[in-house]
């Protein structure tokens, strides 16, 4: 059962520093494996929150619950005042238009060109746009990630870093108010990882979007995080700014920074 207490008062219409998303006491298990256990996190407009945890600690499960790809066992997820697990398919689609999701594996459609990949969310979300408007949005999104020349290329023709940037362009094309990043720098070389980190920060400045970033790349955490939520054993272990965490004497926290 989901919690019935009303947290709508915390989740107000998007405005500066307003809470746009609340996750409270979220639990999720697969069989006997309890992945998330009463985990909570709050996200405000324009801030970057990093969820830091070891591989397999349930970070990806958390954001898949937020976007509605997985159903939590218990707890509450509210985005712009709407409880995600309770929404019907139509309402879920509407709320998903406000949430961008950058997949760890990029999830670009292999059988489509870059242009078709970027057009896909525009066309599928039933947004009434002319072809000229669609073309302009695709151009703008590619310009944001500085890959205008790849518009007619297939994903297989792109490097790992380029694929990540195209995936980010596809995430940005609907100008989401919340962006969920699943390990955005994993598997990239340090230079490309730095480019992606710069893009995340540019996006935050340009769109003033709230970002929840799942990562264990400490360089990424250091550069993008306004706040770090440590997820250990499926629970909130510690929540603090990066600078505070790095000075901690707690062995559980120190292990990440050494």
């Amino acid at each position: 059962m989901y919690q019935t207490e009303n947290i709508s008062e915390q989740v107000q219409a998007p405005g500066n520093d307003e809470v746009v998303m609340v996750v409270r006491n979220l639990s999720k298990s697969f069989g006997s494996n309890q992945v998330l256990n009463d985990f909570s996190v709050t996200l405000r407009r324009g801030e970057n929150v990093v969820v830091l945890g070891k591989s397999g600690s349930g970070k990806s499960v958390l954001i898949k619950c937020i976007i509605g790809l997985l159903k939590p066992d218990s707890g509450c997820i509210e985005v712009f005042g709407q409880r995600i697990p309770d929404l019907n398919a139509e309402a879920l689609d509407a709320i998903r238009m406000k949430i961008g999701f950058l997949f760890q594996s990029n999830a670009l459609y292999d059988s489509m060109t870059v242009r078709e990949n970027l057009e896909f969310p525009l066309r599928r979300h039933s947004i009434l746009l002319t072809q000229e408007e669609v073309d302009q949005l695709v151009k703008d999104a590619l310009a944001d990630v500085k890959l205008e020349h790849t518009i007619d290329m297939m994903p297989a023709e792109l490097s790992g870093g380029m694929r990540k940037r195209i995936a980010l362009a596809r995430t940005l094309i609907l100008k989401p108010a919340i962006i969920l990043y699943d390990e955005p720098t994993t598997g990239l070389d340090p230079i490309t990882a730095r480019e992606i980190i710069d893009l995340i920060m540019e996006v935050q400045k340009k769109y003033h979007a709230a970002s929840l970033i799942i990562s264990h790349d400490m360089n990424c955490v250091r550069m993008v995080a306004d706040r770090v939520v440590m997820l250990i054993g499926g629970r909130n272990y510690k929540e603090a700014p990066y600078e505070e965490l790095i000075q901690s004497d707690d062995p559980g926290i120190k292990a990440f920074f050494e």
Binding site: L69, M97, I99, F101, A107, L108, Y109, R124, H125
Partner: peptide
Amino acid sequence: EQIDAMEVSG
């Protein structure tokens, strides 16, 4: 994860 990507794209 392309199937998941489709689902979040409406």
